[in-house]
């Protein structure tokens, strides 16, 4: 690992560990909510596909 050219902030690092733990709960509940919505919703009338943070490896913009 190379030396950083800026201060990442100790406080920011410590808080990040906390937020990341909390975020896991949020993401988990989001996924559960989405699954429930999917279960009850009519697929044809379902929401248009929303862009996700994950890259689909089979999909290329080129």
């Amino acid at each position: 690992m190379i030396v950083l050219y800026f201060d990442p902030g100790l406080g920011a690092m410590l808080v990040q560990a906390l937020i990341a733990a909390a975020a896991s709960v949020i993401v988990f509940s989001k996924n559960v909510k989405a699954k429930i919505q999917n279960f009850f919703s009519n697929k044809k009338r379902g929401k248009p596909h929303q862009d996700s943070i994950n890259i689909n490896e089979d999909e290329s913009k080129f």
Binding site: P8, L10, M13, L14, Q16, A17, I19, A20, A21, A23, S24, I26, V27, F28, K30, I53
Partner: peptide, 18 residues
């Protein structure tokens, strides 16, 4: 700061939540 750890799975969840 080396002592601070964030599990990879949590790290990715944080990014996803943001």
């Amino acid at each position: 700061t080396k002592e601070i750890k964030v599990k990879k799975e949590r790290h990715l969840n944080h990014l996803d939540a943001l």
